[in-house]
């Protein structure tokens, strides 16, 4: 394993944010695994650190194919992590909204530009990201529909779902979108947790990456075949909104099957404890996404369901 410098962000009084890549194998630059860009994606940081540990062991065992190189970037925003801030720098900007970047503009654009030049040398970009919402979700591979998205390859992670999302204007500045428009393959992996460290979720994510690398002939590693992914379009998910605000008490969890009309959650009055609303399933299906903090606003997304999909 080699540690390489990718970009040095210089600060007046803090130590430089020296973004590093952990490189395994040598030769053709095949897969780049990119860790969290937000400083609250602790689970994603944990996954990438464990992936570095695992790949270090595997490299010693000689499982990386000849002339194949893998790089893991455990974090591109440790300034954010060290201050418990989601976003980057004094301007509070989302790094994953400033790709492809450049080498002449704002500090954040120089950071993303510097990283993008290195990442795009790899054929496959696998990024660990999360939703801005306070929620958990079923593990899945997500990709923006650019015309270059490759669903067949996304299936090779063996996660339960692959979701294809039609881009909105803000998506055009993400790493996933820009890697695809450079005609590389880009996959975002969403895991259940974000702000907690979850060992089961971590093992699942690492297995998914190793499965993909094995199936692409980058490593030789025996692992479980995983799922034949169910491919979804983002717009086919059924949203269930909170009709009232209050204390959010879910009675179903991500991944569970619910029937039409079944109670999914209660929203309680925060002062007198009375039930303001019982959220009922608007369709039969699997719970794909669930709000996971104790308070909820009116109209906030409480759940997203895979319509009429059975266990």
């Amino acid at each position: 394993m080699q540690i390489v410098d990718l970009y040095d962000f210089k600060s007046t009084y803090r130590e430089d944010m020296a973004v590093k890549g952990y490189v395994f194998g040598s030769g053709e630059k095949t897969a780049c695994i990119i860790g969290p860009s937000r400083g609250n994606e602790y689970q994603q940081l944990y996954i990438c650190s464990q992936l570095v540990k695992k790949l270090t062991e595997l490299e010693k065992g000689g499982v990386i194919a000849t002339d194949k190189q893998i790089m893991v970037i455990p974090s591109v925003n440790f300034y954010g992590f060290n201050l418990a801030k989601d976003f980057f720098g004094v301007k509070n900007l989302d790094i994953n909204a400033y790709f492809p970047g450049n080498n002449y503009g704002e500090p954040i654009s120089r950071l993303t530009g510097g990283l993008f030049e290195k990442i795009k040398e790899y054929t496959y970009a696998i990024q660990f990201t999360s939703f801005y919402e306070r929620a958990e979700c079923v593990p899945h591979v997500r990709m923006t529909e650019t015309g270059y998205q490759n669903v067949s390859l996304a299936n090779l992670f063996g996660l339960p779902y692959v979701v294809v999302k039609k881009p909105v204007p803000t998506d055009t500045a993400t790493l996933n979108y820009n890697m695809q428009t450079e005609e590389n393959c880009a996959f975002n992996i969403y895991t259940k947790a974000k702000e907690q460290l979850d060992d089961a979720c971590t093992k699942n994510a690492i297995s998914a990456v190793l499965r993909f690398l094995t199936r692409m002939g980058i490593i030789k590693y025996e692992c479980h075949s995983g799922y034949i992914s169910h491919v979804l379009k983002e717009e086919d998910l059924t949203d269930v909104y909170a009709g009232r605000a209050g204390l959010f008490k879910p009675v179903v969890k991500c991944g569970e099957y619910v029937r039409y009309g079944e109670k999914m959650a209660e929203i309680l009055d925060t002062f007198d404890g009375s039930v303001r609303e019982e959220i009922a399933a608007s369709t039969d299906g699997i719970v794909f996404f669930a709000h996971n903090t104790p308070l909820i606003n009116q109209y906030e997304t409480a759940f997203r369901m895979v319509h009429r999909l059975h266990e």
Partner: peptide
């Protein structure tokens, strides 16, 4: 005039 309103969790 109210353009848009929504309920917040706590009062």
């Amino acid at each position: 005039e109210t353009v848009f309103e929504y309920e917040l969790p706590v009062g």
